[in-house]
Design a protein around this nucleic acid. Sequence first.
DNA 1: AATAACGTTCAG
DNA 2: CTGAACGTTATT
Length: 799
Amino acid sequence: MAMSLSAEDEDYDSDSEQPRPPNRPKPKMAASPASAVKLSASRGTSGARRRRTRCRKCEACLRTECGECHFCKDMKKFGGPGRMKQSCIMRQCIAPVLPHTAVCLICGEAGKEDTVEDEEEKFNLMLMECSICNEIVHPNCLKVKDSNGVVNEELPNCWECPKCNHAGKTGKQKRGPGFKYASNLPGSLLKEPRLSRDLKEEPDPPMVATATVTALTATSAVKRKAERDECPKRKEEEPPKKRSPLLSLDGTPRPRLEDNPLRKKRKLFDTNEEPVMVKKKKKLSKLEDPLTPKLLRQIKTENDHGDEEDDQDDDEEGPEEDDEQEEEETVKKERDSGAEDKAKVLLSPLLRTSAGRETDQASSNSPRAGPSSESGDAQEKSAAQPKARHQRRRLPNKESGKEFNPEAPNTEDCLSNQNHTRKPLKPEDSTTNQSRRALKLEESMANHNRRPLKTEDSLANQNHRGRELNETPRGYPPLSWNRSAQITPVCPRPLPCRSPPKCIQMERHVIRPPPISPPPDRLPLNDGEEHVMRREVWMSVFSHLTHRDLCVCMRVCRTWNRWCCDKRLWKQIKSITPLMLSGIIRRQPAALDLSWTNISKKQLSWLINRLPGLRVLLLSGCSWVAVSALCTSSCPPLRTLDVQWVEGLKDAQMRDLLSPPTDNRPGQLDNRSKLRNVEDLRLAGLDITDTSLRLIIRYMPSLSKLDLSYCNHVTDQSVNILTAAGTTTRDSLTDINLSVCNRVTDLSLTYFKRCGSICHIDLRFCKQVTKEGCDQFIAEMSVSVQFELIEEKLLQKIS
DNA sequence: AATAACGTTCAG
DNA sequence: CTGAACGTTATT
């Protein structure tokens, strides 16, 4: 795969570069009437179609063009031909809005929500665009009130109008408006779902897994119907069988659920007859005012628990991809681990619930795997059966099952027991990095232990990194796998199959941030009252929960689901499996820990491009192929970058990572490194030499913390470079970790005297560093700054 | 199926 | 009117 990826890159470049060989004659299309005709035709179907435009307010809209993406390179301003006419990938709007000129098809007027205060009224007066027929109307102008509209909260002013909803139309049109995200992006990162062929797929069982993934997709509201009609699509590649295993694993819970006593509980939930609307798509029951948006908020019962929310979450799965295998593993693990079981138990009721419904549904409709499933048919059915309504939203079981695993949290827990991965530890890993790393490792590893076994590079490096868990540990002597010891001994980890790069399908879903509307402040109770505890109080409770537990809470009810999605609870997302990429996007974490995962280059690239606010990125133990995504993506705000133990990351790769874009166009690409704002760089275990250090001092002027532990090629000369006169590093550096760098001697300590801000020097396990040398350093520095030896060869400034 | 290209729509 | 870029169509 590495090859393929690289190949792609090359192509990419070449493309952008020159005028391009006439692969395609540009002239011809230009005037072709045909195209025009077609256009008009398509439009005709649903009336005047309005093109959505960027909101100009989201993070993406506020960014400046990266100048490096496929589309930027095409722009004339960046020296390209300007034929593609697409927005910079980094600037693709997260919430495209209707144009200002949009008006109601019925009354011809613009949105009037500003004229009223009441939420419900606002809804009735705002313009809503149907994701199926594309008509734009004021809900108030519709006469068909007998049926319900289903709001798609993922996109502003988007719903499935009552007419379409009632008619049971499924949006054949691929996705709702504003789908640009999913289409037209190179690299097949985002592709559209092809509904059509999926249809025939077989029923479900196998699909389950898939379904899960897809189903959840954010877009659900929008296209769900289509999908379901069409039928679930699964990824082509995956062999059904795979799923089956999954199912079994995963599925287990569900089936039982139904029989389970717990199930009754579920019923309790169900009891509320109220139609709950899902936030995303709410379906209004006839009982209520169909169009009332407010219903959503007013949901009296939370019974649905989570349907919607689930959807949301679930949707997250975006990038499914090759990982199925992973999933399986994950699942297994979870299952295996005792903890997991417990967790499941806890969850079971919840699961059950959803499972139950889903089941029903599933049976009724073939599960469509598509991103969205719910509403369309569901509604119809609901009409038929009263009960149905609750269930409608949910997808077939699979989803529910799957969702679980994916959730990051679980992974952590589950895995912990089993991990086998070992990471190299420093002898004592007190060091910050290390300790962290260790922790993570476990977690993450647990999740997926499959790292690629070896790549060429890795072979080359073998001494250092233990690439695979199974294999012998990394070469460093002093290390012991700390965790491993405690934990299970090595496990037989599946061998890595690094996931083949199948096509990633993250694209299937439009990934958008959570609804803008604030979540309710109090929990609505069945009796119509509100719970006494306010949201903030709950939040303080939630803040003490692990992500895993949060996920459990998110299944309790719609309100909890929204509350638990609060950014504050997800400041840091760890142990993420590739399956959860879209979930990550939804939460817009400032810190992302993908350490020791087998995330692919495409996935990482996809993520980075959608996390404009990412500050911390931890990629230790990932492959260089994946990490190289940083070379082509721009991540200006990144402050912390952890690429420890990245296989294949050596001087040449460091250059790729740090160097400014080489193909600066006339425009004004700045020739500063994409990683110029990095302050905390973790390079432990890399075979880098002074060459890389020179790049670092040149391109990371704000570097404050540098971890070079386990870098056998680092020498006193390296330190000399870092602290040389004229470098900004000399003054910005506060923490340096050179532990287990056997070529470093006491001489380095003398170099550190030049660092004006140095506070922490870790030279533990440096065979050539002596106690005397440290004492001398302390003595000489005492004139201006007081240092102390926290432990052997570990110097710290006394504050 | 993927992706390049294009006509047309939008905002200013 | 112009630059940007959406959503569709043409090509590969």
